[in-house]
């Protein structure tokens, strides 16, 4: 790439961006169309619409009001449930993964190497394999139809993020940990006051990935939460699709989908700098 002229490089990247951004833009356009034009856009009768002829901003309010059996209640409930579950999972994953990563990186204890290997091995297990045993376990605990099966496992760490935190913490000079010891901190204090603040780039990656994964998680809430008022946005959106999946209502489906996606996009933009820095650092030093 070094030999390419700057303008050509920019043009190439812009063309690549268009490929990735077009579906999103198309969703925005369809979500603002009238029912008739949206249906036509879906079937390709009008060609591909690149700009809404007469933006129907009311589509968004209509779509959100129609989510669930009572106007607005379904959407507000689903949004609240998604926020609660996602917040708990993000907090749990960051805290537990960084703590365990710190223990693997800095504490000397018998069996550390073997347990680390074992933990890495769990990454090879597909989620579907553990789904039924976990369901039976949570049912045995009486946790079905509560958010506990979704939130509690997050507080026991995530193998991939533990690995990332460990690799990052290994780069932190040992003398910082020792200085904190001389300053009177125990292991937990060192983790909380010195290590965790230094792990910001990894925490950004961990938080963003976990947020997106949990916010968009469909299977977990579908399996463990059955009542409509317990639905998260992903499940509510699926019910909405079943109800409004026809060509006449596709503008509403797109509007609801966009609202569901919006927090992920905003979070990524907000954390972008830390996120990219963390990935780059992992690539160089990890």
């Amino acid at each position: 790439m070094k030999s390419l002229r700057p303008w050509f490089k920019s043009a190439l990247l812009a063309a690549g961006s268009v490929v990735f951004l077009f579906p999103l833009w198309w969703m925005v356009v369809v979500s603002l169309e009238t029912p008739k034009r949206a249906g036509a856009a879906m079937t390709g009768q009008d060609g591909i619409a690149l700009w809404p002829a007469d933006p129907q901003w009311g589509n968004y309010a209509e779509a959100l009001a129609e989510m669930g059996s009572e106007p607005w209640v379904g959407f507000v409930n689903a949004l609240a449930n998604s926020i609660v579950v996602t917040t708990l999972v993000v907090i749990g994953t960051v805290l537990s993964s960084s703590l365990v990563g710190f223990a693997f990186a800095r504490l000397r204890w018998r069996g550390r190497g073997a347990l680390f290997t074992l933990m890495l091995a769990t990454m090879m297990l597909p989620g579907q394999v553990t789904l039924i045993p976990l369901f039976l376990l949570f049912r045995g605990l009486g946790w079905i139809d509560t958010i506990l099966p979704l939130a509690v496992p997050a507080f026991f760490g995530n193998a991939f993020f533990i690995f990332m935190y460990r690799q990052f913490i290994l780069q932190v000079p040992e003398s910082l940990v020792e200085a904190a010891k001389v300053d009177g901190h125990g292991w937990l204090g060192i983790w909380w006051t010195v290590i965790l603040p230094l792990c910001r780039p990894v925490t950004a990656i961990c938080a963003v990935f976990t947020f997106i994964g949990t916010w968009n998680d469909f299977m977990g809430p579908l399996v463990y939460l059955h009542a409509e008022e317990q639905s998260t946005l992903a499940v509510a959106l699926n019910s909405f699709r079943n109800q409004y999946g026809g060509l006449d209502d596709v503008h509403l489906l797109m509007a609801a989908s966009l609202v569901t996606m919006l927090p992920c996009i905003l979070l990524f933009i907000a954390a972008q700098r830390q996120f990219v820095e963390g990935l780059a650092r992992g690539a160089v030093k990890g």
Binding site: P173, S175, L176, E178, A179, A180, K181, V182, D183, G184, H185, V194, P197, L198
Partner: peptide, 20 residues
């Protein structure tokens, strides 16, 4: 006795200042 209770202070080779 723990380092913090020994009434000592240490200056490290790489200074060990908390970067944050």
């Amino acid at each position: 006795i723990a380092p913090s209770d020994r009434d000592i202070a240490m200056v490290f080779q790489n200074y060990a200042l908390y970067p944050h």
